[in-house]
């Protein structure tokens, strides 16, 4: 498991996207570790990024790092618009807190290592793998899970479109894919089919539902409205 250090001082560096291939902030000062890992595939950029990362890490270490104990402690979360407090050990991942403590099991644990996208949720409007964040790192951020997309009075477009195009079979990857599509379309309204092919590479489906998902994503993008930065 790819656990990050329990160190609160560099929180701002990990608010970016996870696993999305449409990242636009690789060169921004808010450059994060995941972007570094992904960017390292491109040899040219990697060196410069590594230097930037080292510098940033050094800068982070200069700040007064707040090291917390391993004991359970309260964490304030905002999930689907509800403020709540969980008391968990600092090593607990967001995915496990959502699934096991809050019974929000729409985010699925599949790959055990931040690769498949089945646990995708929105954090401050951006699609993020819930297994790539510690609970304590998302304190104060707005977390949106797939469950919020369907209620007796409201069905989100993305759910409607997945049903219309049958973008699911067993349904296990589906909520993660739905959240990835929701986040991607919010960030890329009017995306073309080709855009969707490139932008939704962060999720794995085994049943082979990509054809339906692609159509659902395209339809969703056509009615998506861009969201304000930092909003959910």
């Amino acid at each position: 498991m790819d656990r990050e250090p329990v160190n609160r001082s560099d929180q701002s560096s990990r608010t970016g996207d996870a696993g999305r291939s449409d990242s636009t902030n690789r060169s921004s000062p808010e450059f994060n570790r995941r972007d570094f890992l992904r960017g390292s595939g491109a040899a040219m950029a990697a060196t410069a990024m590594a230097v930037a990362a080292t510098e940033q890490q050094a800068a982070a270490q200069q700040q007064a790092a707040k090291v917390v104990s391993a004991a359970p402690h309260p964490v304030k979360l905002n999930v689907n618009g509800v403020d709540l407090t969980l008391t968990v050990e600092p090593r607990v991942l967001l995915i496990d807190a959502l699934r096991n403590d809050l019974n929000l099991t729409g985010c699925k644990d599949v790959c055990d290592r931040t690769n498949c996208g089945a646990c995708t949720v929105l954090i401050d409007g951006k699609p993020v793998y819930a297994c790539s964040r510690l609970v304590m790192d998302v304190e104060g951020q707005k977390i949106v899970t797939s469950e919020s997309l369907l209620s007796p009075t409201k069905t989100d477009d993305v759910v409607t479109n997945f049903c219309k195009h049958d973008g699911m079979q067993c349904g296990f990857c589906t909520p993660g894919f739905v959240m990835a599509v929701r986040g991607y379309c919010n960030q890329n309204p009017k995306a073309t089919v080709d855009d969707c092919r490139k932008g939704l590479g962060g999720n794995i489906c085994r049943c082979g539902t990509y054809a339906g998902v692609l159509q659902a994503a395209f339809d969703t993008a056509q009615t998506a409205t861009p969201i304000a930065k930092g909003g959910a």
Binding site: N103, K108, E147, L149, C163, K164, P175
Partner: peptide, 27 residues
């Protein structure tokens, strides 16, 4: 015909064995 359980699957409200989570469940 769209699948009847499409909305609960897409929204993650469908409960699989892996999601069975009554209070007190041990892991």
């Amino acid at each position: 015909i769209q699948r009847l359980d499409g909305p609960v699957k897409a929204s993650g409200q469908a409960k699989y064995a892996n999601d069975t989570n009554p209070p007190g469940t041990l892991f």
